[in-house]
Amino acid sequence: MSDSESTTQAGPPPADMDEIFVEHPFRQFVAMYFRNYAAVAGLLVFVTIVGAALFAPMILDLDPFEMVDEPLLRPGEGGHLLGTDNLGRDLFIAIVYGARVTMAVGGAAAGITLFIGLTIGAMAGFYRGWVDEVLMRVTEFFQVLPPLLLAMVLVALFSPTLETVAISIGVVSWTGVARLARAEFLRLREQEFVKAARSIGARDRRIIWLVIMPNALPPLIVNAALTVGIAILFEAALSFLGLSDPNVMSWGKLIGDNRDYLLDAPWTVTFPGVAIFLTVLAMSLIGDGLTDAFNPKLRER
């Protein structure tokens, strides 16, 4: 641009850049992350929800399906913080217990997504040629099938268990990860350090996992945070539609169970939705924070 005449003149580096360069990379990483307040808030929400999912059931020892009071009590009525749903279940307890399933299924599904996506993307990007050609055609094939519809069909055809739900979500949502991993591998495989590793006779497997993968990780880790968020949304949609395990409490199921009372008791669908929303939001904010932490210079602008 035209204003470059003045602005690209390199002045002295700003003072905070100096301290960034001398710090240990990990401390710098943490420092950059904590500079992003939204990302810190996201992390807090995430820790709270995981904490609730892990410990609350141990401490409380309640049954989220138990009818504890009259149905459709407003929030606060009868000592129920968030009210009761159409079956007289305490919404707060149901949401706390629902966190377990949502986090477990979301996490497992994201794990499967990442595993499939990374493997296929890494192979395609590393070997190129016909391997790439075949794997990319497979990826395009999966992009053509509407993901949620396919997940619904898979759950319906096989059994509606949590395992099936997690696997189905993994099967329908790995294509984005694969494309990203492939792009990273295509870029990195041409770099000098990969050529160096090859020149000393390292095997392909070693180059893929120990030489290229660590360098490809930053964007993939950011993507992993988003993947968890997306997997939670898929799980919520499936259990909302009643296609997940009917004997397990989850946020989506809670909304699905109460959808007919939407107009009379809006809180029954609002609160579980808030839980889903906050969790996914936390994952995206964490993703943003990680992006900043991996690219300190990007934030400088």
Binding site: D3, E5, S6, T7, Q9, G11, P12, P14
Partner: peptide, 11 residues
């Protein structure tokens, strides 16, 4: 003149 991060530059 241009306003820059490091002050005013008389271009």
């Amino acid at each position: 003149e241009f306003d820059t991060r490091d002050g005013v530059a008389r271009v």
